[in-house]
């Protein structure tokens, strides 16, 4: 008997009391979505900014390796999206569009179509996500309602920059992934 059969038949041999699958209420909380989203991203050690604030930061920093998949900032790109993710090793900035954000925790939903390469938002040094302020949901429940059962290949709720507190619980931003997250809310 294969392990698959062994495991499944071991489970099926048990007579277990039936338990109904509960329905999930559509919980949401009051408050201004933009304010709550901004607060959440800030708490997660990211930054929410306007277009002009972003442009000021970007031009002052003078980056040379930039990939932009966001139509609004396509002119900022200095590099095309490579075929091999290993070529992202020294990438300084990635600019991508977010599908929607969740106010309660700042999570932004991204899928293959926004990412180009799945490694992009992790491998880049700085990540910029461009997001429409009308595309904010209240809680994760509305977030999943929006995604429904669409097949994304790879999908991701991203809520901040790479961070760790593994050394004596001191929070450090920029562990293995992106060292910063900027959300351009338009």
């Amino acid at each position: 008997m294969s392990s698959r059969e062994k495991i499944l038949s071991a489970i099926r041999s048990l007579t277990l009391e039936a338990k109904t699958l509960p329905d999930i209420p559509n919980f949401s909380s009051p408050g201004n979505l933009v304010e709550r989203f901004t607060q959440s991203i800030t708490d997660n050690k990211g930054e929410v900014m306007t277009k002009s604030e972003f442009e000021a930061w970007f031009s002052a920093a003078g980056f040379s390796k930039v990939i932009s998949l966001s139509a609004q900032f396509s002119e900022l790109a200095t590099l095309p999206l490579p075929e091999d993710p290993h070529d992202l090793e020294s990438l300084e900035v990635a600019i991508i569009d977010g599908q929607f954000g969740v106010a309660e925790n700042g999570a932004i939903w991204l899928e293959d179509t926004q990412l180009g390469l799945r490694a992009l938002p992790f491998a880049t040094e700085h990540l910029v996500i461009v997001l429409d302020r009308n595309l904010l949901e209240n809680t994760m429940h509305q977030g999943y309602e929006k995604i429904a059962t669409a097949d994304s290949g790879f999908g991701l709720f991203l809520a901040g920059p790479s961070k760790t507190a593994d050394i004596e619980q001191s929070l450090v931003i920029g562990a293995q992934g992106a060292k910063s997250l900027r959300v351009v809310l338009f």
């Binding site: 997660n44 999570a107 097949d151 994304s152 290949g153 991701l156 809520a159 790479s162 961070k163």
Partner: peptide, 17 residues
């Protein structure tokens, strides 16, 4: 787990690249 509202990366894998 740690009192944060969500982990920063929550990846959903449904098919390989």
């Amino acid at each position: 787990a740690t009192g944060q509202p969500i982990t920063n990366y929550n990846s959903h894998f449904s098919s390989p690249s």
